[in-house]
Design a protein around this nucleic acid. Sequence first.
DNA 1: CTTAGGG
DNA 2: CCCTAAG
Length: 696
Amino acid sequence: MVLQKRLDYGFNGYQVPHIPRATRSARRRGINRRKADGDGTCPFDLLATVAGKLLGEEGESSPDSTGSVRGKEQGAIVKGEKVKEDEDRSLKEKSYTEGCYERGFFISELVSQAPVVNRSLSELPHVQNDTISGPASVTMSSDCAEKFPFAKQFVNGESSGQNGNISSKTEREASGCGVFSSCTLDTESDKQMKIELSNSAKVSTYKEAAISSSKFPDIWDKKPSTLVTSDESVKLSLSTYPAPCKSFPLIRNDVKLAKKDDDENSGCTQPSTPNKASGSAPRVRDQPIKKLLASKYREENLKSDDEGHANSGRKTMHVYYNRNIDYKHQRSQRDFPFKKRKVFKCGSLSNSDKEMSTDGICSSPTDDLHGIASSSSKASSGGCTAAGTSVFNGGRAILRPGDSHVKFRIKSFRVPELFVDIPENATIGSLKALMEAVTAILGGGLRIGLVFQGKKVRDDNKTLLQTGISHDYKLDALGFSLEPNPVQTSQPLGADCRSCVLPYETPQPLTSRCPSPGTVVHTGIQQGRSDDHTGTSLSNFLESDHDSAPSPHYAALEKISANSRALVPLTAVNAEALSVVPLRKPKRSEATQRRIRRPFSVAEVEALVQAVEKLGTGRWRDVKLRAFDNAKHRTYVDLKDKWKTLVHTARISPQQRRGEPVPQELLDRVLTAHAYWSQQQAKQQMKQPSETYLLL
DNA sequence: CTTAGGG
DNA sequence: CCCTAAG
């Protein structure tokens, strides 16, 4: 028997177009690391720890690499450095380099190792509040999550640790689900294409049984299962740690987020119940598409192993190309995001732009399964180094005699589904970690971006909860994106595709690093948890962040995009001929991802006003430290800007104000403070010159 | 890196 | 929010 599963999972639009300006992003990152890392989360530590375990290396779980999760000013800086260090290490030296495959670091391994990690973390002195949120597990499974109760297994296995304070049970019950929306690929050259990494994997019966068996752990570890990617029979070893998992993870579309406090709301908007064939949550909109895709793809599946060079070895990649007929339609879809404002004006929401990330990355629910890639054309002008993924259908956009370059961009593509079960207090970094793995699988060269409710989440250290990704967050709100990896933004034309797709700076034959598709991979990530009670000034804000997060209309918008994309399978693709060519100098380049918009909450405004009243208007850095030290995403410039707008807001009539209304009382204080400090400043200016003058 | 301002 | 000039 075989499980005919189509694991089409979309990390909501793997958007590739933007090439971040190194300088700026670097600068910002630097700032964040040093100034605002005291939030109590250190995803990379976690990662490193896990990776270390998986790789059988020592020291990763040592206190020093995981410690000082929470710190004040100085501690934060130190920690920031550490984080950085860890980040580099984990990314370059461990998990994400070729070694991860060869050495078996993979999601699946993570799972099996979770317990270990748990323990080690719990022993860490510094982690106290931040860690130990009990089983922090990320379970990635094939769409048949129901059948493969990974999560459960997982939890059980995890609780072995002494610290599993938070009963796994609770977590499980309170888990919410989310769905990653999908992605689309779109080419610059007016040709849209879909690259489908489907693994309509078939799982042999015994396998299935084994997996679902309650003995999961044992079986899993000792019985490497075999997944057949398709009829063509691409065999994938499902072995777990320490055996290298060279397969493409079967990813599920649901994200279950456990919520410890709130058990009642089984905020599971999406019943975590087992899904049918598609394996995805019972979302209406998914149905049609999935079916469509499934049926169409199934046949084509795996044919391309040989043709789809982009796929290293066992990886099967499906490329679907939209015919011209569909083009217009798609085109309009593509542009959709930009018009969205008008179309879907859901005024009630405070952040009206949530539907669209500033860069045009639209992760709004309206995006159908394929995620309507929405980057503006110009925005994407940025060279797209979309690794080997950019496969084109033979004959279409191939190298031309004179102009040997075919330029296009990949807007998104689909990858297997991913089922994630992770506590809310896990960090964004954890999520990204998952994607990192996937990225690596895809060949790397891409950077992971996370989009939540249409907004880019840049702060890896923020917890899911803080980001608003809680047990009851709206489905579809969360999506991942792939961005060109700055490091290897450009590739020589015609260069071997494989060389282009190497993840990170480590040159490696793609084949050696690319796992095959059609495999179940699961990950267990132990994540520190920040203590809500000890939270300082901003903890509430962060929370409110989530509360005020706009999302109501998501459901309403769903249908809109449900069936918009007819896809036509692309036939053979010659990867060799399809080297990705980064477009030269993105003109104006929206290359840089604009930060997500995060409206200030009243609480934040309150804190800001208070701080300014005390410190004045010329000491934003101090204001930041004083009132927003824990709000990593609020830079002093942000605060200054906010103050600017506050003053403006206070001066205009209430009718003209927009967004979440700020209490008049606060606005009054703003004016008062502003007047006062302006005066002070004036005085200073008056004095300074005269004094110096006198001195002279 | 911080400030201050314009965009 | 972004970008820059300035200090």
